[in-house]
Simulated assay, not measured.
Amino acid sequence: MDKYRIAVIVGSLRKDSINRQLARALEGMAPQDFLLTQVRIDDLPLYNQDDEAEPADAVRRLKTEVARAQGVLFITPEYNRSVPGVLKNAIDHASRPYGQSVWAGKPAGVIGVSTGAPGTCMAQQHLRNVLAYLDMPTLGQPEAFIQAREGTFTEDGQIGEASRQFVQGWLDKYAAWVRRFAQL
């Protein structure tokens, strides 16, 4: 049976990132016909238009992995009320050269977790603006601004009981969104 391949872009480089932890937990919660795979962005050079004709191997890899996916899941922390620079850098690389964006038409989901009460809401708002420009149909509802507090994750890294039903509901809505727009 074919599976929907979902490119998971985590906007944090930190090994112990709670957003990376969320990504790993979502992999185990995905429907059986979905395969969520994290895409590496930590080795991308800073975007420079001068390099578009001969992109670095890491840039080619990013573009290939996104192009092969039927959807993209962005899991972003919030840095200074916006998206992390490393995430924006990855987005910029895969959107260029102009007219050759690998993002276009890919159904997107946006989620994030933060220790702060707003739970990445400003980063998600900014990211949604960028994704609209990139012609990515993006799941609008439900929004998922998750606050990391005691019980959000279990000791083994799964979603805790208090948040599990909400997160599963969000993931199920995203899966339906992908099925609506993507083809196997």
Rank of each mutant, 00 (worst) to 15 (best):
V66P: 01
P45I: 13
P45Q: 09
T37P: 00
A58T: 14
V66S: 04
D43N: 13
A56K: 11
I41R: 10
A69E: 03
A53F: 00
N48H: 06
P45G: 09
Q70L: 08
D51Q: 15
D51W: 01
V66R: 02
D50Q: 12
N48E: 06
L46V: 14
R60P: 05
R40A: 12
P45E: 06
V39S: 01
L44T: 01
R60N: 15
R68K: 14
D51R: 14
R61F: 03
R60T: 09
V72E: 05
R68C: 05
R40M: 12
G71I: 04
D57K: 12
Y47N: 04
V39E: 01
N48K: 10
V59W: 05
T64P: 05
A67L: 04
A56C: 07
D43E: 13
D42F: 00
Q49S: 11
A67Y: 06
E65N: 08
D42C: 05
P45C: 13
L46M: 14
Q70R: 10
K63V: 01
A58H: 05
N48M: 03
R40F: 04
E52P: 03
P55S: 06
L44G: 01
D57H: 04
A56H: 12
L62S: 06
V39Q: 01
R68G: 11
E52I: 04
V59L: 07
K63N: 13
A53Q: 14
Q70M: 08
N48D: 15
R68Q: 15
D57Q: 11
E65F: 12
P55N: 08
R40P: 02
N48Q: 11
E65V: 11
D50W: 00
P55L: 02
A58R: 03
G71F: 10
G71E: 03
D43H: 15
D50F: 00
D57G: 08
L44Y: 02
N48I: 00
L46D: 07
L44K: 01
Y47W: 08
A67F: 02
A56T: 02
A53N: 07
V39I: 13
E54G: 07
T37N: 11
T37I: 08
A58E: 11
E54Q: 13
Q38H: 09
V39M: 04
K63R: 15
P55K: 01
D42T: 03
P55Y: 05
E52A: 04
Q70G: 14
Q49C: 01
L46I: 15
L62D: 03
